[in-house]
Design a protein around this nucleic acid. Structure first.
Length: 424
RNA sequence: GGGCAGGUGGCCGAGUGGUCGAAGGCGCUCCCCUGCUAAGGGAGUAGGCGGUUUGUCCCGUCUCGAGGGUUCGAAUCCCUUCCUGCCCGCCA
């Protein structure tokens, strides 16, 4: 959420950013809305002050036993009551209007976010690894089904379209990958492992930005809960409503959770296999930092995610998302795209974003620089480290052998207890 | 699910209609005294919004789990709701 005061002081910056995102919000409209709120607040405060001082007079008169004087002031003040109540009601209404207007507005953009219309305009920063020559490569669906360990038919019987079911060694591969990732992030990079709830309340999703604007992307229960679309949601809200001490920062959280996405609006896209499904597992990284260290942390986090791909020896490239592809709450986002031989393409496997104070403001997450200092909003970052389902796909496709077996990446052998995945 | 008891400042804890944003204690910060393995004295110590100011000091107002209500006035009374603890029931 934006700081209305920032918009008032920098209307041009705000408008230019919205234009870059192709979003239709204007500083002028928001300022007018807030000015109305401020005018009402002043009137309300004045009325409250008048009422309060009169009430004190009544109290003083009663204390000294002067009932006549008390009655006289009570009469004078009677009319103020309605006025104060009306102004208070108006204040609630206007404050709510401002917040409601601000909530659907996307974050500003870092200056170096490239302009573009969609993912094709993302800019490649670097590539890593060597793409192996594979004669007539198969994709993960053909490989997995031939192994008898990837069962889309059974998944469809159980749950309909866009679900995956893994068996035996491929199920174990998923678990091994997640275990390896968690191990890396906790032991090597100092993240705190969290096993959070997968069902959360609406205000939690509002905190990270999925609500109110993107409700159609979420699964909602028959009660008040929503299924999390990513562990970013609970992990970032770990600091909700907190005032942290400066020394406590940075906070680094990692967690392996299932993620649930309705995939509304992506019908016809990636319908084959386990690239785009309603349920997948992901190891997430979240950092909470001071404002001055968030960019440094952004690079560090991206390197943590890249490190996992390097250890798995999967070729990938790192791109920076353009203005047409970047997410709602992000100032700047790096995507890691892994090479998939079955598609002869790089596909997204991680996305690392610096959200600045955008989420912190929604969550009311703050810190104190010094013991007596004024609370300031923290900065929050999130990244996949990595999407486990897609990593299964990448391993299966990149490590395929001519006989249909899959070589287990060296670093996973201890977790798998074997070096090769074969048909039963 | 049924019953009982609670939710107060960083923490503990007082406060059942009037000058309470809140006693006292702990913790923390600063100052003083003293002088040594510890202690004594003093001051300060929440956040939001708005104003004023940019001498960052002051002023108004709101906030005692949350939301409504009664009242001239509510931490204190009423209603709703959430959470916590304990007992019973049920159950991975």
């Amino acid at each position: 959420m934006h700081d209305i005061r920032f918009i008032k002081e920098n209307p041009d910056i705000f408008d230019a950013n919205m234009a870059k995102r192709g979003a239709n919000y204007r500083a002028e409209d928001l300022i007018a809305l807030d000015d109305a709120r401020v005018a009402n607040t002043r009137a309300m405060n004045d009325a409250q002050a008048a009422q309060k001082s009169a009430s004190k007079k009544i109290g003083a008169a009663k204390a000294s036993g002067d009932e006549a004087a008390a009655a006289k002031v009570m009469e004078e003040v009677a009319s103020l009551k309605a006025e104060v109540q009306a102004l208070e009601a108006k204040d609630r209404e206007l404050s709510d209007d401002v917040r409601t207007a601000l909530l659907p507005i996307p974050n500003l953009l870092a200056d170096d976010v490239p302009e573009g219309d969609g993912e094709d305009d993302n800019v490649e920063l670097r590539t890593w690894g060597e793409i192996k020559e594979i004669a007539s490569p198969k994709d993960h669906v053909d490989l997995g089904e031939a192994l008898g360990q990837m069962d889309f038919e059974r998944a469809a019987i159980l749950s309909g379209a866009r679900f995956t079911l893994l068996r035996r060694d491929l199920a174990k591969l998923e678990r091994a990958l997640a275990h390896f990732m968690l191990q890396t992030h906790t032991e090597e990079f100092g993240y705190e492992e969290i096993s959070p709830p997968a069902l959360v309340l609406p205000e939690i999703l509002e905190g990270t930005g999925q609500l109110p604007k993107f409700e159609e992307d979420l699964f909602k229960t028959t009660g008040d809960h929503y299924l999390i679309p990513t562990a970013e949601v609970p992990l970032t809200n770990m600091v909700r409503d907190d005032i942290l001490s400066g020394e406590a920062l940075p906070k680094r959280y990692t967690g392996w959770t299932h993620c649930f996405r309705s995939e509304a609006g992506s019908s016809g896209k990636d319908t084959r296999g386990m690239i785009r499904v309603h349920q997948f597992s992901k190891v997430e990284l979240v950092s909470v930092t001071t404002p001055e260290t968030s960019w440094e942390e952004h690079d560090r986090m991206t390197e943590c995610a890249e490190h996992v791909l390097k250890q798995l020896e999967l070729p990938f490239r790192t791109v920076v998302q353009c203005t047409g592809d970047i997410g709602f709450g992000s100032l700047k986002t790096y995507d890691l795209e892994v090479w998939l031989p079955g598609q002869q393409k790089y596909r997204e496997i991680s996305s690392c974003s610096n959200c600045g104070d955008f989420q912190a403001r929604r969550m009311n997450a703050r810190f104190r620089r010094e013991a007596k200092g004024k609370p300031e909003f923290v900065h929050t970052l999130n990244g996949s480290g990595l999407a486990v389902g897609r990593t299964v796909v990448a391993v299966v496709e990149n490590y395929q052998n001519p006989d249909g077996s899959i070589t287990v990446p060296a670093v996973l052998v201890p977790f798998m207890g074997k070096a090769k995945i074969e048909a039963a």
